[in-house]
Design a binder for these strands. Structure first.
Lengths: 133, 133
DNA sequence: ATAGGTGTTCCAGTAACTGGAAGGTCAATG
DNA sequence: CATTGACCTTCCAGTTACTGGAACACCTAT
């Protein structure tokens, strides 16, 4: 398969696939014309990567997941730990964003938002008032 | 004030402050020795930036906010619009992360996580099963 | 004089791509 | 056979918002 085919298959842009080869996540063979030639296994690694990335795993986590996937004797506990760490980070990020959202909502609701110049949002940013949050 | 002083004041690392000067967010004067010399106004801009960044506004949004802040005649509606756009993006991000969290939670809960090799998480990533989410 | 704590510049690296230029290859058509 | 257009190649640069480090100047105090 050429790069365009695995791109269609995996949903990853060709640019990204070439990048993944650069950083050693896939190892396609090369045809006589210099084109990359993906076999089943390499194509499968790409769909695996696409899914793992869409779940928010970092490239390095994906690298680990791929090696765990290739290791037929690894314990599922290793994978679960990685996934749980990732889950914790996501949950933490959500909490942070939610705190941010609440602060911003308060500020936005306090700003009358008309053509007058006084603005509680800028007042907060400039620190001229006791800060909320 | 030297850069170290405004760093203490604003909570921003000196590296970041130099970077902010590079990209034109602050314009400190220079002393005879070549050291940056921050007056009240420039120091204030830095605390403004620190707060705006901590609320998740991008550098370019901060640039806009600073100019709106400097413009005594601007309408508060402009600021409110910017803040609301930002709020919308945050809310969207939260929704996405939450969907991710739910998917991962399902996967993690399905994995027995012991020393056996079979693992629903990897199965999902490899696409050998109907995908949840 | 010297030591430590500042400050300066400049270069490179981070994460994960993305865009674009310049050019080679392939399949089909006229 | 030539050409067209889609596809492929490599390489370089840019993105975001910094961060680290090297090499060097300066300032204060002992």
């Amino acid at each position: 398969m050429n790069i365009g085919d695995v791109s269609d298959l995996s949903g990853l842009p060709t640019k990204t696939i070439r990048y993944y080869e650069d950083i050693g996540l896939v190892h396609p063979a090369r045809g006589a014309n210099g084109y990359r030639d993906f076999n089943e296994r390499e194509a499968h690694r790409l769909t695996f990567l696409a899914r793992a990335r869409s779940l928010g795993f970092s490239i390095e986590e994906c690298r680990t997941l791929l090696s765990l996937y290739a290791d037929r004797s690894r314990a599922s506990a290793e994978v679960k730990d990685l996934a749980r760490d990732h889950l914790d980070r996501i949950a933490q990020k959500i909490r942070e964003l939610d705190a941010l959202r609440r602060t911003l909502e308060t500020l936005v609701s306090q700003c009358h938002g008309d053509d007058r110049p006084d603005c509680p949002i800028l007042d907060d940013l400039s620190g001229t008032l006791g800060k909320p949050t």
